[in-house]
Nucleic acid binder design. Structure first.
Lengths: 336, 336
DNA sequence: TCGGGGCTTTGTAGCGCTAAAATCCCTGCA
DNA sequence: TGCAGGGATTTTAGCGCTACAAAGCCCCGA
C-alpha cells in the first residue's frame, strides 16, 4: 500500500494517474457523474478517497467561470434576529447545491469591503440586508453584474429583493393597541446609522393615530448601541412628554425587554399600567415575564427566498427587479 | 471618452491595454506597489477605477497558491457569546491584510461540510470552535495540511489552539461562592451534543467542594436548546434534591437569566435566598436585575490570537502545536 | 566614453481545472 | 462484412492571474 507517495498536494492529475484515466474523467466523476460509466466512477471515487483528494474549487471556478458559493453580508450577530434568516439562507443554499458563506459588516464601509471581497472571490451571488449601501458598493455591483438580493426591503429593489411591508406591520401593531383600548401610544425608533431601516414606521404610526384623532407626538429616537439600556431611557423620555402614556411600540424586542425591566423597577404593571409591544420575536420575547407581544417577520422564509432568487438567476430563470413579499405575523403574548 | 467598450468582463489584460503597460505591471500595482514607479502606479490605478476593475482573486489564488481569506466555522449566532470572538478575528484579519469569512455549522456534520468547503476554496487557514470534530474532518485537515486553530480549547491542540482554562475558571467561581459564605452549591451543565465543551467543569466543581467537605451531588444537566427555559427546569430539579440549595453555578448567562426569572416568580431574593453565577458575560448579564455575576472569557483576545496564529503560520513564522491561553476574569455584580 | 549596478518593466510558463471538440469503441442493422 | 450511431473517454485550449527570469533603462564612477 505504498501508494500514497508524498508528491506534494493531491491534484486531479494525480488521481487520474493513480486511477489510470484522464483528468477529464475525474472531473466528470465529480461534476457530471452521469457521463461516466459506473465502474469507472467507483474506481475514481475510491482512488480519490484513498489519496485524500479535495477538488480545488478555485481552479474549477476559474476554468468554468461558475461558482457554487453565495456570499451573505450580515450586519450583526449580536442579537438573534438574523438567526432564522441565516438558517433560511443556509437551508435553501444546501438544498440547491450551493454553499453559503457569511461576512459580518457593522458599518456601510465594512459592507462595501465585504462586497468587494465577495466579488473578488467571484461568488455566484450576494445577499445583503437593507437597501442602504455606499455608492462605491453599488457601482461595483452594477459594473460586475453579480446577482444581488436585498433583504428586509419592501420597495424599489436595486436588483432583486425580499422583505415585508413595515408600513403594513406598523399599522397592524397600532391597530392591535387601539383595539385593546390604549389611547396614549408612544413610538420608539432608532437614530443614527441604522435609522433608515426604521424610518418608514414613523409615518405609518402618525397616520394611523391621526386618523383616530389621537396624539402623535409621543416619539423617541433611541441609540441602538445602548442595547437593553435604550429601553429605560426611552420610557423616561416619553414620560417627560406625557406621564400618562399607556402603550409603547418598540423597534426591537431588545429595547422592549429593556422597557419591561424598567417597568419592573418602577413597579408598573404590564399591560395594565402600560402596554409594551416589541418587534422581531427574539428569543427573549417568550422567556421574559410578562411575555412580550411582538411582531415576527418571516425571516426564515426571507432568507430562503433570497437564496432562491440568486440561484434562479444563476440558472438563468428569472429577470431583474424581482421583489418578494415574505410577510409577517403578530405573536400575541401578555405585554399588550 | 468612448474608452469603456463593453468587451465582456474587465480583466487585468484589459486594464493593461488601456493603460499601455503589461499585465504584470498591473499585477504589481495591486500586489507589490513598491515595485512600480509611482507615476505608472497612479496611471494604472486610475484606469482600473475607470474601468471598474476588481482583481479576480480566484485566478490570483490559483496562480500564486496563496490565499488572503481565512475561514471561521462558528457553531451559533443565536446568542451573543460569539460576537466578541468574531470581532476579534475580524479585527486581527483586517489588520494583517486578510479577509475573514464565516460559516455557520450547528452540528458536527455541518462543521465537516464547512471545513470541506473552506478547503475546496483553498483558504489560508481555518478557525474552529472546540476540539470535537468528525474523523472525516480531521482526516481532511491533516491530509491537506491547512493551518487550523481551535478556540475555547485548553489542551492537546490538533494543530494550534487558543483558549482559557475552564478548570481554573470553575475553581475561581466556586471559590468566590465559598468566600461569600455559600455552602449548598449547585452545578448546572449541559447534556447532549455540546456537553463536551462543558464536561471539564464538573470534575473541577466536585474536587473543589469535596476538598471542603461539602456536598457535591447538587448537579443537573440541562438541555441547551431550552434556552432561558432550561433555568427554571434546573432550579426545580435541584430543589428536589435539596430544597435548601443556596447557590447555583450556571453554564451560560442565558440559563442563569432563566434562573433569575424563575426566582422572581418564586419571590426568592437574589443573592440572599440563593446566589446565581453565570458564564460568558452576555449582554443580558448587565441588564437584568439583579445584575448577574458572571465569568467573562477574553473572547475578543481569543479570536484575535486565533487569527494571528493562522497568519503567522502562513508567513512561516511559527511551528506546530501552538497553544495560547487568553485568560478570563470574573465580573462581579449583584447576583452572587 | 564605457561598463556595472540598481531599479523598472516585460516575457514566459504554468497554477488545477473544465467546456467543447475530437476520438474511440461497441452495437445493431443492411 | 461494412458502416452508421451513440455513449464513454480523451485531447485541446484556455480561464485570469502571478513567480521568476530576462530585458531595458538610467546614472555614476573610472
Amino acid at each position: 500500500m505504498a501508494k500514497t507517495q508524498d508528491t506534494g498536494p493531491v491534484t486531479m492529475q494525480s488521481v487520474a494517474d493513480a486511477a489510470g484515466v484522464s483528468p477529464m474523467t475525474v472531473s466528470n466523476t465529480f461534476r457530471h457523474p452521469a457521463r461516466v460509466l459506473e465502474e469507472t466512477r467507483l474506481k475514481v471515487l475510491k482512488v480519490a478517497a484513498d489519496l485524500g483528494y479535495v477538488p480545488n474549487h478555485v481552479a474549477g471556478n476559474l476554468a468554468s467561470g461558475q461558482s457554487r458559493v453565495i456570499g451573505a453580508v450580515i450586519p450583526s450577530i449580536k442579537n438573534s434576529s438574523f438567526y432564522k434568516y441565516v438558517r433560511g439562507m443556509q437551508d435553501a443554499a444546501t438544498a440547491r447545491g450551493y454553499q453559503l458563506v457569511l461576512k459580518l459588516a457593522e458599518s456601510l464601509a465594512q459592507e462595501t469591503a465585504a462586497i468587494q471581497t465577495f466579488i473578488g472571490l467571484r461568488v455566484a451571488g450576494i445577499a445583503l440586508v437593507g437597501d442602504e449601501h455606499e455608492d462605491a458598493a453599488i457601482d461595483l455591483m452594477r459594473k460586475t453584474g453579480v446577482p444581488v438580493v436585498e433583504s428586509w426591503v419592501d420597495q424599489a429593489p436595486f436588483d432583486m429583493a425580499v422583505g415585508y411591508s413595515t408600513v403594513a406591520a406598523t399599522r397592524a401593531m397600532i391597530d392591535l393597541l387601539l383595539t385593546a383600548g390604549y389611547r396614549k401610544i408612544g413610538f420608539v425608533g432608532y437614530a443614527g446609522a441604522v435609522s433608515h431601516r426604521f424610518a418608514e414606521r414613523l409615518p405609518a404610526f402618525r397616520e394611523r393615530l391621526a386618523a383616530r384623532g389621537l396624539r402623535t407626538d409621543l416619539i423617541h429616537l433611541a441609540d441602538e448601541t445602548d442595547g437593553f439600556g435604550a429601553g429605560p431611557k426611552a420610557l423616561e423620555a416619553l414620560c417627560r412628554i406625557d406621564p400618562e402614556i399607556d402603550a409603547l411600540l418598540c423597534p426591537t424586542d431588545i429595547l422592549a425587554a429593556g422597557v419591561l425591566f424598567e417597568c419592573g423597577r418602577r413597579n408598573w404593571k404590564v399591560p395594565q399600567r402600560i402596554a409594551v409591544a416589541g418587534w422581531g420575536d427574539y428569543e427573549i420575547a417568550s422567556e421574559i415575564t410578562p411575555g412580550l407581544t411582538t411582531l415576527e417577520p418571516h425571516t426564515y422564509d426571507m432568507g430562503h427566498a433570497a437564496i432562491q432568487a440568486i440561484v434562479d438567476r444563476a440558472d438563468g430563470k428569472t429577470g431583474k427587479g424581482l421583489l418578494l413579499d415574505t410577510g409577517f405575523h403578530i405573536v400575541r403574548r401578555d405585554s399588550a
